[in-house]
Amino acid sequence: MSEQVKKFLYVNRKAPYGTIYALESLEVVLIGAAFDQDVSLAFIDDGVFQLTKGQDTKEIGVKNFSPTYRALGDYEVTKLYVEKESLIERGLSTDDLQELTYEDEDDDWAEKPSIRIVSRKEMGELMGNQDVVLSF
């Protein structure tokens, strides 16, 4: 493991199931969590569909990986930035998204939301403030 800490941003712009990108992106995030880097996830454009609740894949025969997002907090992946404009453009609101939380060890393990809703402008600024950007 490296002692160097870089800011990693995983950018998710694609919806789940139609293509494998969302799932394989999540696999990178889970493995990457072991490297103790400063990790953020961005969900923009169709990527916001990854976080919706009520996904049921039984009838398409594909593994439902949406519960895995709820485990991210245990991997200390706690910064999931979701773009407000992308939600609105798709007729979604935060009520349509899963509730994702983590336990903050610096705050007596208080349960806190992992999803942070940001504007497009804020998302752009976040993207511009990274060392490594991985796009899926």
Binding site: S2, K6, I31, G32, F35, Q37, V132, L134
Partner: peptide
């Protein structure tokens, strides 16, 4: 090899 090699590449 594993996905860790991708992360390591990002770091190095």
């Amino acid at each position: 090899s594993g996905l860790g090699q991708l992360i390591e590449m990002g770091i190095k």
